[in-house]
């Protein structure tokens, strides 16, 4: 059996069996997460997995059972992740959310976790519908997209990537649950980024949103998917293998020194260009093309803990000596309040 650099097998990254509907896109994402963390050689006991409420938010039980998980309340995963991250930044955080959890009830916390640039991987399993309550529209359902009972959605869609870029997220990507290769590369790159790394993964709901006319069905996505780049993730100090002509290749250095290589597939896109990333998303709405790949990337912004100027010792590991200012301080304070 193949092992990674920690001598762990892929089974060491598994979770409990999924209880989602058979064929759910979310299970493909779970598998991609397992593969990516296995390949990266992350110690699964150090990972913290966070989620809100909904079908997507159940999935952290399905991967990396050796890591602590926290299934919190609806739309509030970002705040719980922020708290855990300031408390102990050494634990790599992965959050899994859905389109209702992020785009509707949780839109406020989503924008603010982006604004703070909290160091975590934030995966949105986006199917444009409320699965667990049986098929209501979510805020990411496209305008005109019919629900299962046939009523067209009268409201425009909130694009989770566009709002994240606007709010200050520093790594924003979109993928499709069926594109395993791209998804694994993006998850690995997101892990290596220091700051908020959002991957909005279109993940069709087989039960409530996979019918003709829905813009988040398997058939629709397969027809309209427009990959931005082919991504190849290369960990630090390993040789970069790319069989491409110069000029076609763009290599991006990530915070941990590893590199992300993008192969352009026809469309010219510079992920450091915020305006063109937004234009690409908005144009996709008009042309009905699903633009996938790394849309925006800014490695220059400090992450939340850097902004807070936190000490290198995680706050959870401080001892009495660090915590107790001692009796002299009280004496001085008393003297200053006379």
């Amino acid at each position: 059996m193949s092992t990674n650099k920690l001598n762990l097998t892929k089974a060491d990254y598994a979770g409990r069996p999924s209880t989602l509907c058979k064929g759910c896109g979310h299970d493909s994402i779970t598998n991609a997460i397992i593969q990516a963390y296995f390949e990266l050689g992350v110690n699964p006991t150090q990972v913290i997995k966070l989620s809100g409420i909904g079908c997507s938010s159940k999935t952290p039980t399905y991967f990396m059972e050796k890591g602590h998980g926290f299934n919190s309340v609806h739309g509030r995963m970002p705040s719980v992740a922020t708290g855990a991250n300031v408390a102990n930044y050494r634990l790599p955080a992965i959050g899994v959310s859905g389109d209702g959890d992020t785009g509707s009830i949780g839109i406020g916390q989503y924008l603010h976790v982006a604004r703070r640039n909290v160091d975590m991987v934030y995966i949105i399993e986006n199917n444009g519908t409320y699965g667990l309550t049986k098929g209501q529209f979510s805020a990411t359902a496209d305008l005109g997209s019919p629900a299962k009972r046939g009523t067209p959605n009268p409201f425009p869609c909130i694009d989770c990537c566009a709002v994240a870029i606007d709010a200050g997220a520093t790594f924003v990507a979109r993928s499709f649950s069926g594109d395993r290769k791209q998804l694994i590369s993006l998850i690995k790159a997101a892990y290596s980024h220091r700051g908020l790394a959002v991957i909005d993964v279109i993940s069709p709901c087989v039960t409530f949103n996979n019918h003709e006319g829905s813009t988040k069905s398997y058939d629709w996505v397969k027809e309209h998917d427009l990959p931005l780049q082919e991504l190849q993730y290369v960990p630090e100090k390993e040789e970069i293998e790319i069989d491409m002509k110069e000029g076609d290749v763009r290599t991006i250095e990530l915070h941990d020194g590893s590199h992300l290589t993008l192969r352009k597939l026809g469309k010219e896109h510079d992920p450091s260009d915020r305006a063109s990333a937004l234009k690409l998303i908005h144009d996709g709405v008009q042309t009905k093309e699903l633009v996938t790949g790394l849309l925006y990337f800014n490695p220059e912004m400090p992450d939340h803990n850097t902004i807070l100027n936190l000490s290198p010792t995680p706050l959870t590991q401080l001892g009495e000596k660090d915590l107790n200012p001692g009796p002299e301080v009280i004496k001085k304070l008393n003297a200053s309040m006379k």
Binding site: L50, R76, S79, V80, G83, A87, N88
Partner: peptide, 22 residues
Amino acid sequence: ADVQAEDELSSAGMVLGAGWAG
């Protein structure tokens, strides 16, 4: 760490996340 949150819901969530982490 001092985090001025975006609302009280979020501040409570951060308190829980940090308390959970230890």
